[in-house]
């Protein structure tokens, strides 16, 4: 009975604490036309302290989305264009000699901010990618002999262009795994595109207002962690992740030769965190299987390694995830 009261209390608390989600969504929708999935993904990443890898052709409001989010949260934002000649020091910062002080002083790089947009991350060489991904993981940067903590909240949204793969440095699997979500965005709908034209022709770009402080996000993250996840849901998540590793045990023998490696334990953690954040966005104090299924594609799509056989048969990771979701029994 006591536990039952806790859940009711938690539900009430979450309903109160998550009230900003609606406001934030309204503000985002004022500026971003369509791209609901992108906005939802940004919110999940923000609330579950995970980073986002975004794949989409140029001009789909990726920069605008994260810029707007930074404005709404009243946080710092920087955009780094990744190029082949970028150096880790350009990103993290370096020590420069000050003639006035006659000593080396620290010059912090653009990573010292709340929201980072790493544009076209696959255009920079591996050492720059590693520097960013290390900072993402450790949440600290060492310049010279001093280690600096990064600001909180710290959210990296890296973009990749699915076309023009020439001269790029594709992210290694181990590094892609560090992104909590990989969101694939598509072109807007006809009506949405019409609306975009109108906004642009009228030069009347709506502006988002600051309604939150970074501290509110940190507080909300703590509440998200408290969202109740039943053992049945945990088992469901484990089953989904295990089905990517041993498909033959889940009557998915056809994928045995097509999956070269399944999802890591980091996928299970990310899936449960993202499901909790999704439940929070839906203003619920507990996770239901719908939450897991809603975030499953974005969490797992970049973590399943497909074999040459799968590529030859045009099998995508999304098809594999769909089949897993349609095969694994829902609790």
């Amino acid at each position: 009975m006591e536990q039952s009261i806790d859940i009711r209390e938690l539900n009430e608390r979450i309903k109160t604490e998550s009230s900003f989600v609606d406001l934030l969504t309204i503000e985002m929708n004022k500026v971003i036309v369509g791209q609901k999935h992108l906005v939802e993904g940004l919110l999940i990443g923000l609330l579950s302290d995970g980073h986002i890898l975004l794949e989409g052709v140029p001009g789909l409001a990726k920069t605008l989305a994260i810029n707007t989010l930074a404005t709404i949260v009243d946080a710092d934002f920087s955009r780094i264009q990744f190029t082949p000649d970028l150096l880790p020091a350009d990103l993290l910062g370096t020590m420069i000699y000050s003639q006035k002080k006659e000593e080396f002083v620290i010059k912090k790089g653009p990573i010292f901010t709340n929201f980072v947009l790493a544009d076209e991350i696959n255009r920079a060489p591996a050492k720059v990618q590693s520097a960013l991904l290390e900072a993402m993981q450790e949440r600290q940067v060492t310049i010279g002999e001093t280690t600096y903590k990064l600001q909180e909240p710290f959210l990296v949204m890296a973009t990749q262009n699915p076309i023009e793969q020439e001269g790029t440095y594709p992210l290694p699997e181990a590094q892609v795994d560090r992104f909590m979500l990989k969101i694939v965005i598509d072109y807007p709908e006809k009506e949405e595109e019409q609306m975009i034209i109108r906004h642009n022709l009228a030069q009347s770009f709506p502006k988002a207002s600051s309604i939150l402080k970074p501290e509110d996000i940190i507080k909300a993250r703590k509440v998200v962690k408290d969202v109740y996840m039943d053992e049945k849901i945990e088992k469901y998540i484990v089953d989904i992740v295990f089905a990517t590793r041993f498909p033959e045990k889940y009557n998915l023998d056809k994928y045995k030769e097509m999956i070269s490696y399944g999802c890591s334990p980091r996928a299970s953690i990310s899936l449960s965190m993202a499901a909790k954040a999704y439940a929070f966005i839906k203003r619920r104090g507990y996770v239901i299987p719908e939450d897991v299924r809603a975030v499953c594609h974005d969490v797992l799509r970049h973590r399943i390694g497909l074999s040459y056989e799968a590529e030859a048969n045009n099998v995508t990771s999304i098809e594999v995830i769909n089949d897993i979701l349609n095969t694994v029994e829902v609790p």
Partner: peptide, 10 residues
């Protein structure tokens, strides 16, 4: 059933 199974509802 969902409430009982996933939200400890009694």
């Amino acid at each position: 059933s969902d409430l009982v199974k996933f939200a400890k509802f009694e």
